[in-house]
Amino acid sequence: MPQAVAIQPALNVRRPGWRGWGLFAPMVAWLALFVVAPTAILLVYSFFTGEGIGEVDTHFTLENYRRIFKPVYLDLFWRSIVYAGATTILCAMIGYPVAWYIGRAPASRRGKLLMLVMIPFMTSFLIRTYAWFTILHEHGLLNGFLESAHLIPTVFSHPLNILYTPTAVMIALVYTYLPFMILPIYTSVEKLDPSLIEAAADLGAGPTRSFFRVILPLTWPGAAAGILMVFVPAIAMFAVTKIMSGGHIRLIGDEIQEQFEGGGDLPFGSALGMALLILFLVTYWISAGRSAKVLRGT
């Protein structure tokens, strides 16, 4: 999606005929039914008042939105942004070289390498999260390995206590979203003409310069898509944060779940959901704007 937006200024888009619309109609129906309608319901609910579990008073109020600005909820939003931001940066740092390697590999091997990236998707992500338990807990595989390699107690004085800490949450988040960074960058890298890099070198650009002036701008649509595909879902992540932190770290997604399922307050949960949606739109707007700028070369 972001790629399309990024490229748009450069193209003269022809208006689609009725056949085009016909092909597009199922998608429109899908969006209307599963995106627009639920969002509209959420919007309406966010102006009601919660009256105990599952009950609402349908008089119009702005109280829910006022409540979001309490420090405790602003903290929650801020923490979610920090975790999602850190996840995005780590995924980009790890994912870009991987995507580059796959994209530059001989065509015959690319399919296999991509397969390796996709394999984790074949297991439920909750199962994959629980697998980290086995690795990270106090008497788990990681500490067992460190002990048998005599790194405990030589390098580390005592078994590592990673599970139920912010580190565990970060590990799970990066692990979950890494493929969403690798795949779009890969598509950009694959399309990149290697002769352009050679040309940059011929014209005297060093590796750093050709990376920042040639490679990055040309692969930016993929990177922007990757950033969006990691940051947006990561900010609304729930369950994983709760599981990996033993219930200590809660992000905005956990709070929304609590409002809807834990006997909280449906209208307030809806208002939090709307606030999150606004945050998505802002993220999208920033990243799309940045893409356009990079493409223009400024």
């Binding site: 919660g50 009256e51 105990g52 579990i53 420090p71 405790v72 909820y73 903290d75 929650l76 923490r79 200590h248 809660r250 709070e255 609590e258 409002q259 834990g262 006997g263 909280g264 307050d265």
Partner: peptide
């Protein structure tokens, strides 16, 4: 306890966020 559930929920959210 009716609406007091929401008070509990709010209190715990505050506490879990260190406030």
């Amino acid at each position: 306890i009716g609406k007091a559930n929401a008070d509990i929920s709010q209190l715990m959210t505050e506490l879990r966020n260190g406030r």
